[in-house]
Amino acid sequence: MSTSTELLESARQVDARLTELERSVNLLLNVTPVNAAEAWADFERSDFGTAPTLRLRPLDFQPDLVRRDLYNLEIEDVADPALHSLLRTKRDEIARMVTALEDRDTSRFVYGTLQLYGGVTAPLARAAEELLEAISPQAPSAQTVTAGVFAEAAQEEFDRYQAAYPEFPVSFEVRDDVSELMVSFGRLLIPETAAIRSDRVRPLLHHEIGTHVVTYQNGARQPLKLLTIGLPGYDETQEGLALLAEYLTGGLDPRRLRVLAGRVVAVEKLLDGAEFLDIFESLRTDYRIPTRTAWSIAIRVVVGGGNVKDAIYLRGISRILDLLAEGGSLDPLFVGKLALDHIPLIQELLEREVLHPPWVRPRWLDVPGAQERLDRLRAGASVMDLYEGEEAA
């Protein structure tokens, strides 16, 4: 049998090049509007009657050259079957990303996002409707913090990780060209115009830093660098894990659950042919979602010509709950960015010492009450069980 060193040597160059190519494509930033604040102001001035014009940044890569590089990679030379399959599947996923980005602002874009993220199944749609029906609408919180205050809280959270792991890098910035909190290749990006609910600050730090940044940094310590950018289809599991972090730390409150359900409803309406104004008005009138929240949900779904990604949040936490009820361990999910379907492969590679155990343990596993909540979920739970009444969880 080949040694782990020999196996990695055969895959190393392909892995490094795939990682580099996905970084150049940068799907997340390239489907994020650069004018969201101005678009909201215009929409508000129109008395919510004129659909916004959302601008996306120009692509800074040449799609044909990326495709050429992708299919010039000699994946056939990777002898190990598990690594060969993984690298080939990732190559094909990056090719789909490139095509989707080429199709931005056309009717074809939504089909590209369907290939990347999947659609809305009947059980998922029912779960979303049940949440929206069971949880009564609540007035938007009047207490918010600015981007600067959130950045200070982020610095403190990074400091906590550095205290336990001195080499853990601090990586965040306030940006004027993003409209939502996000982590891009391990760096936390904070919108300059952010107005974040005060009671959401800690849960969001566990979501963004404690999950997305931590798994990125754990992946960076692995021989396979694809674990930093994500194995094929990793997004759903990452977001489900991040929502679990919110729940375990008491931050998956009724308002948040309604947003997650509203995102599924919005994607379903998009796939049924609805446009921005119809989606926005339905969220406001049929589901009594606050105006600014309905706006945020709707633009995320229609951007670029239609993006179904937001359905993965509720689907992701549902599948994490299934994993816990089946007695599955979360530990393999901290190795890097991967999907639930990759757990057997990751466990095999850990046993063969091709991969290393996770470097950083997320802080959200150890906050007071987290293990008790986790035990309750292991006894069996659905997304409806995450709703704990009208008080914040």
Rank of each mutant, 00 (worst) to 15 (best):
R17T: 15
R288K: 08
A294E: 02
A153R: 14
I289Y: 00
P169L: 05
S2F: 09
E156N: 15
I299P: 00
L283V: 06
I135E: 05
G380K: 06
D92K: 02
S136I: 15
G336C: 08
D199M: 11
V183F: 07
V301F: 02
T19K: 05
E236M: 12
F109N: 00
I299M: 00
V201F: 13
L86D: 03
P357C: 05
V265A: 10
A298S: 15
V183Y: 06
D375S: 11
D15R: 03
P169K: 11
L8M: 10
E44P: 04
G328V: 02
L189Y: 11
W40Y: 08
L21N: 07
S2I: 13
L283Y: 04
L204S: 06
E6V: 14
A79Q: 13
S179W: 08
A294W: 05
D310R: 07
G112I: 12
S24V: 14
R221I: 00
T291D: 12
L252T: 03
F150C: 04
S141G: 14
L333G: 00
V265D: 05
P358T: 02
Q238D: 10
I75L: 13
Y234Q: 01
L374R: 07
P63Q: 03
V201M: 09
E93V: 14
V354D: 06
F158A: 03
F158Q: 07
R88G: 11
N26D: 13
S85V: 04
L114S: 04
L189C: 08
L116V: 10
D341I: 09
P357H: 03
E236C: 03
I209P: 02
V383Y: 10
R96V: 09
I297M: 01
I75G: 10
Q143F: 15
A16H: 13
A147I: 05
G316V: 01
E133I: 08
G336N: 03
R104Y: 12
T237F: 01
S179C: 10
Q115G: 13
Y71E: 07
E208N: 00
E129L: 13
G305Q: 07
R175D: 01
Q238L: 05
L189A: 14
T249C: 05
E326Q: 11
Q62S: 14
V264R: 01
R96D: 11
S198K: 13
E372K: 09
I343Q: 14
T291E: 13
